[in-house]
Design a protein around this nucleic acid. Structure first.
Lengths: 313, 313
DNA sequence: TTCGTTGATGGAACCGGTTGCAGAGGACCC
DNA sequence: GGGTCCTCTGCAACCGGTTCCATCAACGAA
């Protein structure tokens, strides 16, 4: 396993020059640099991550902190972040903090260069302070002063509600998400506004955990309202609704329109059913981009990015 | 940020002794060790991972390679492995290899101490060779000579089929999984055997990707067989079936029994419906245990563990 | 011709741990 | 009392890079 001295020897230069050449420091004569790079390639040299990390004082590791992996909303975010991390030569480690977020941060803070924080719920100050030790990017939530990227689902939920109302749904149900969810607050407000402006009657149910079981359980309450359209906080809740409605013989979408996401709508061939299309991978990619820019000093903390969320169907 | 010399100074010993004390080498007098540990605790000392890694020549990083995160079967495995890794003081990095598994291994092999390989499909020799550079544990698949842990779903599928037959289902459908899936081969064989022995007629459909869309799409074919019970390869396929059956007005389970997993059965209140209960987290935990034992030299490669899978309902 | 600059390079310290080896000191045996 | 062995400890080398600083050659200007 060749090391930097081997490369230097083959190229006929010192370790120092070899290091500079391979890192493109610009202080090396072009011709020398070419020689070094060629030598490295010939030997199949791969830098030792640990040594580099020790010398540079940076680990090259980013942690993405998620509350759970059981939620299909989070996994694309991880996948997107992972892809970008790989491109940037960084390792991504996934930390699941069911409850003990603070503990997870403390343990990891010394080990990583930065955090991607997916913390849909919980106290603002707590979340903010957790990421204070190292650069952090908050995903799908906004807190003043923290860099963040969110999918603008609030607008999308508003649009979707407006559209439903325009199609004649005068009674609409919104099934709310988990208690304390930042996105749920945004969405509830947006749906309320849209319904009021369109003159539709809105019932807000919930809170519900983002699971299909919760969707099943909330079904009777939804039917009781006599609504003709239901907008669930999460796709998983929507799936639960669809399943339960099926076993109860309710005709979807004739008797009740259930908005979920495009793949579901399409697979089931549902008509007259609007759906919001959140690109989780893009969320992950953007978050990682924001973090690397911050690590490179190209960005100040505090930048807030909103990704538009299309409404389909 | 305290370092080992600080700890040593406070404890009144040398770096060497401090290091040994903190790593429990046993060469340190008990009383000295206590002093060092106390000093470390007081200073809030956290060892520098990079330095340790460089000195030891091991990275303390394990990679878990999964084909995708979009499949709810894999995520609990990751969660379980993650939990165990944390206990063992190891970092876990998640590598997603949609297609390019070999590439993922090459890139990572220098960076990590070992692999957890989740590769349900694909060629045996390819999978086996991928993990050859570093210790590896294969998850939910068996290949001769490789350490592995599998959920014994084949037996469970057999039991489940037997039970369905015993309850009077003389026509059963098995909806097969993705092409080339190792588990699918095992399950198909087990289901075939059980059906034959019980004298039930079995139709095997598929192959199907493990998605709920595939479940929706296969529904007409299932209904066409006239079967009264269907056993899908994956929960996601089962959910698709249930959704599509609901929109078609088929009464589940009266007209057709769909076996899925306990949470689904329970949430929907389905009766007469057996379900297999795979503990994905246990799979992940066991895999990580096997790997750490191998890294510590306590185990030889090649050990194969099978976890029993209960059939409920 | 000589001096000051600039650009390229090398020497060596350093990052923060681990570990081989040697040595100090005490216990035990002859 | 002297020698041997054992236990515990410290010194210093080492892991493989990065980077500060000094050096040196070449070149333009005075």
């Amino acid at each position: 396993m060749p090391d930097l001295s081997d490369v230097a020897a083959v190229a006929g230069v010192s370790k120092a020059t070899a290091s500079r050449a391979l890192n493109g420091s610009g202080l090396v004569a072009a011709e020398t640099a070419v020689r070094v790079v060629a030598a490295a390639a010939r030997l199949g040299y791969v830098p030792n991550r640990a040594a580099r990390e020790l010398a540079r004082g940076r680990s090259g590791i980013i942690a993405i902190v998620v509350p759970t992996l059981d939620n299909a909303f989070f996994t694309p975010i991880i996948a997107g972040a992972q892809a970008r991390a790989e491109e940037a030569g960084l390792q991504l480690t996934v930390a699941v903090h069911a409850l003990d977020a603070a503990g997870a941060f403390d343990r990891l803070a010394r080990q990583v260069d930065g955090f991607l924080v997916v913390a849909p719920r919980g106290n603002d100050t707590l979340v903010a302070s957790s990421g204070s030790a190292k650069p952090a990017v908050l995903v799908d939530r906004e807190i003043d002063g923290m860099t963040s990227v969110v999918a603008d689902t609030a607008s999308a939920f508003g649009t979707l509600t407006t559209r439903l109302a325009a199609e004649g749904h005068s009674r609409i149900v919104y099934v709310g998400g988990p208690p304390g969810s930042w996105q749920d607050r945004q969405r509830t407000a947006a749906v309320r506004d849209a319904a009021r402006q369109a003159g539709s009657e809105l019932t807000v149910l919930g809170p519900c955990p983002a699971t299909f079981t919760a969707g099943v359980e909330v079904t009777p309450a939804v039917l009781e309202t006599g609504a003709t359209a239901v907008v669930p906080y999460a796709t998983s809740i929507g799936l639960g609704l669809l399943l339960a409605l099926g076993t109860r013989g309710v005709d979807v979408p004739r008797d009740l329109v259930v908005s979920t996401e495009p793949t579901v709508i399409e697979a089931l061939g549902l008509e007259h059913t609007p759906a919001i299309d959140v690109d989780g991978e893009e969320l992950g990619r953007t978050a990682m981009d924001l973090l690397t820019r911050q690590l490179d000093g190209q960005d100040e903390p505090g930048r807030q990015v909103r990704l538009a969320v299309p409404v389909r169907g």
